[in-house]
Structures are given as C-alpha cells and as structure tokens.
Simulated assay, not measured.
Amino acid sequence: MTDKIALTPKTHTTPPARFSHGVKKGNILQVAGQVGFLPAEQGKPPTPAGPTLREQTLQTLANVKAILEEGGASWDDVMMIRVYLTDTGHFAEFNEIYDRYFEEQALTAAAPARTTVYVGLPEGLLIEVDALAVLG
C-alpha cells in the first residue's frame, strides 16, 4: 500500500493544528483549505494579502497552486475545487476573478468541478479554497 505524504511548501508555515496543507497518496492529492495569507515569514504571524476579495482570492489560488506543485501536480490535474465565501454578495465578483485566473493559467484539460458555499471564517478573511487532484 502507498504511504501518505504530507505536503508543506516553503511558502507555508506549519499548520496551526494537527493537519497537513496537502496530502498525497498514490496518484491522489488533496489540498487542505487555503486562505489568502501571504508567503510565510519566519517568526511572524500570517498576514492576509489585503482586505479585498480580489487580493485574497489571487493569493488563495497561489497558495493552492504551491501545494499542487509540491505534490507534482498542476491545475490540469484538479478534479474538484471547493470555494468557501463569507459573503453571498461576493459570488459574482469571485466568478469574474476565478474565470480570469483560469484563463491566464491556460488549462489544457477540462475545467474542474466546483462547489461554492458560504461560511464564517476568522476576522478579515473572505475566502477559503480546497482542491482534489488526480495525477497521471
């Protein structure tokens, strides 16, 4: 049986609880929920990319991508994306940012499936995203 491998890119700090930023087992890679924190700075608390949905969304997607790459995957390998927004009023704006981001990624595979739900997140955070990828 294939071992599970925990994935933590250099841009990420150790998680605040007992979980991994990403886990790979065989050809399956699960990215844990990521938020729009800027790349980790040793000894400093995590800082959001900015107060806007755009800033946080782009950083959140960059954080997910970093974990995918750490596990040898790309957006083309992603089967499912789950998006957690704190405000129903952000849905249209998020879709515009999301569509443009993935146009720029030049996916060669079909777009992943996606679910969007509304949740509470810690103060100042507007979005969280997780992803499931299948390699090769």
Rank of each mutant, 00 (worst) to 15 (best):
T11E: 11
M79P: 03
F102A: 10
P15A: 12
A66S: 06
T57Y: 01
N27M: 11
H21K: 13
T57M: 06
A111P: 10
Q105S: 04
A92G: 08
W75P: 02
L61R: 00
D76A: 11
N63K: 04
T13A: 15
T88G: 12
I28P: 00
E55V: 02
F91Q: 15
Y101A: 01
V78H: 01
E70F: 01
G72C: 08
A17P: 02
I28T: 15
V64M: 02
F102Y: 05
P112W: 01
T47L: 13
E104K: 11
E55S: 03
K24A: 14
G22Y: 02
T88F: 12
W75R: 03
G43I: 05
I81D: 08
E103G: 08
K10H: 10
I81P: 02
S74I: 04
A113S: 15
N63Q: 11
E69D: 00
H21I: 05
F37V: 09
I5C: 04
H90R: 12
E70K: 09
R18A: 13
T52V: 07
A32C: 14
P51T: 03
T14M: 13
D87S: 15
S74C: 11
A62Y: 01
K25F: 10
G33E: 15
T88D: 13
A32Q: 11
N95S: 12
P45N: 08
S74R: 07
E104Y: 10
A40H: 09
V64P: 02
P45F: 03
F37G: 05
P48H: 03
K65E: 12
K25S: 13
G50T: 03
L61S: 03
E104F: 07
T14V: 13
T88R: 15
V64R: 00
F37D: 09
A17N: 10
G43V: 10
R100G: 10
T8G: 05
K44E: 13
P112L: 04
T47H: 09
L53G: 02
T86E: 02
S74N: 07
T13R: 15
P46Y: 06
K10S: 14
S20W: 13
K25C: 12
F94G: 07
L38D: 01
F19I: 11
Y101G: 03
G33W: 07
R82Y: 10
P16S: 12
G43Q: 09
V23Y: 05
V23H: 08
E104D: 14
P9R: 06
D99H: 14
E70W: 04
A66D: 01
A73K: 01
N27Q: 15
V64N: 00
E55N: 05
A92F: 11
T8F: 04
T14W: 11
A6K: 13
G36E: 07
E55R: 00
T57Q: 01
R100H: 12
K44W: 09
G89W: 12
Y98T: 06
T52R: 04
K25T: 14
I28R: 08
D76M: 12
G43E: 06
I67W: 02
P15E: 14
A109E: 11
T14N: 14
P45W: 06
A110H: 09
A109Y: 05
A40G: 08
F102V: 09
T47C: 07
A111C: 06
F91I: 15
T52H: 00
L61Y: 00
I28K: 12
E103P: 06
L85N: 06
